[in-house]
Amino acid sequence: MTINLRPGSTVMFTGDSITDCGRAATEHGLGSGYPLRIAGEWGLRHPERAVTWLNSAVPGDKVRDLEARWQADVLDARPDVVSVLVGINDVGWHTIAPEGHVVPVEDFAAGYDRLLAPLAAAGTELILVEPFLLPICATVEAGDALVDAGIRKQWRADLDPKIQVVRELARTYGAHLLAADGMFAELCATAGPEHWSEDGVHPTPPAHAALAAAWLRLVA
């Protein structure tokens, strides 16, 4: 089953920097990433079915940060569809920043569940996008630190159980799952991972296009 976007529907994108993509600096408030591509493609395909597109993502957010602003930024907007992409910032960044907070998978699961419960109770359609990590081999900068492939392997070990949480929550709430981690693993077999992300976390324009195309396959 796909989501039926009726005329007048409101869609809320939320999450971290991958979704934010500089939204505050854009007149439409959608940023320059996959939410903008989705809105543009939808408008091209269905000019007779106008949809209100909103983006409340904030760079660096973890699940607990979303929870702190959930009422004002998401619930109060009364969206018909909520699309969530969060989780990469919940990974153990302590591997490069000792003061970083490690989010246990149990806390991640409980917090994410609290985000979804009121939406499900209100009958809101849910799209959960898996957090993802691409296997970049080169050493790249992350903040003030240099991150190599070995550190990213530690991130992967922390991220995988959290991806599983997202999958389980999608089943629990009957949400639509966008299996982004698996999608990018397949795409990396057709073009190198650097084509899709320079640092393994933030998508390049082709990767945003891939996310948008996969998202649009979930709606009708």
Score class of each variant (00 low, 15 high):
98 P>R: 03
107 D>R: 15
106 E>W: 10
101 H>E: 15
104 P>M: 11
89 N>C: 03
96 I>D: 14
100 G>V: 08
100 G>P: 00
98 P>N: 07
90 D>F: 02
99 E>F: 06
118 P>Q: 01
91 V>C: 09
92 G>P: 04
118 P>C: 11
112 Y>A: 01
106 E>Q: 12
112 Y>E: 06
95 T>G: 00
117 A>F: 09
101 H>S: 12
94 H>S: 14
111 G>Y: 01
112 Y>P: 01
101 H>M: 13
102 V>F: 11
108 F>Y: 13
103 V>N: 02
93 W>T: 06
116 L>I: 00
109 A>P: 03
114 R>F: 08
88 I>D: 02
113 D>V: 06
109 A>E: 14
100 G>W: 14
106 E>F: 11
118 P>R: 03
94 H>L: 01
97 A>E: 14
119 L>K: 07
99 E>H: 13
118 P>K: 04
105 V>Q: 07
96 I>M: 12
99 E>D: 15
90 D>T: 04
100 G>C: 12
114 R>T: 10
94 H>P: 00
88 I>E: 03
112 Y>G: 02
105 V>I: 11
103 V>R: 04
113 D>Y: 05
109 A>W: 11
117 A>R: 15
114 R>Y: 07
111 G>V: 05
99 E>Y: 08
109 A>V: 07
113 D>K: 06
112 Y>K: 01
91 V>Q: 01
97 A>C: 09
97 A>N: 14
96 I>N: 12
113 D>N: 12
101 H>P: 00
118 P>G: 08
100 G>M: 13
89 N>G: 00
96 I>Q: 07
104 P>S: 08
98 P>D: 11
110 A>N: 04
93 W>P: 01
96 I>R: 06
103 V>M: 13
110 A>M: 01
98 P>K: 03
111 G>M: 02
90 D>H: 08
101 H>F: 02
104 P>V: 05
108 F>N: 00
116 L>H: 06
90 D>R: 00
98 P>C: 07
105 V>C: 12
115 L>Y: 00
96 I>G: 12
97 A>Q: 13
113 D>W: 00
97 A>I: 11
106 E>I: 12
104 P>G: 07
111 G>C: 06
103 V>D: 11
105 V>N: 01
92 G>Q: 10
105 V>R: 07
90 D>Q: 06
112 Y>I: 07
106 E>L: 10
116 L>N: 12
92 G>H: 14
117 A>C: 10
91 V>G: 06
108 F>S: 06
88 I>H: 08
116 L>K: 09
110 A>S: 08
91 V>L: 10
116 L>R: 07
91 V>R: 04
118 P>F: 04
100 G>Q: 14
102 V>T: 14
114 R>Q: 08
92 G>Y: 13
98 P>W: 00
100 G>D: 15
97 A>S: 13
107 D>H: 14
108 F>H: 02
116 L>W: 01
117 A>W: 10
110 A>Q: 08
100 G>A: 15
93 W>I: 06
118 P>V: 02
110 A>K: 03
105 V>P: 02
97 A>T: 12
89 N>Q: 06
108 F>C: 01
115 L>G: 01
117 A>P: 10
103 V>E: 13
111 G>W: 04
119 L>I: 09
108 F>E: 04
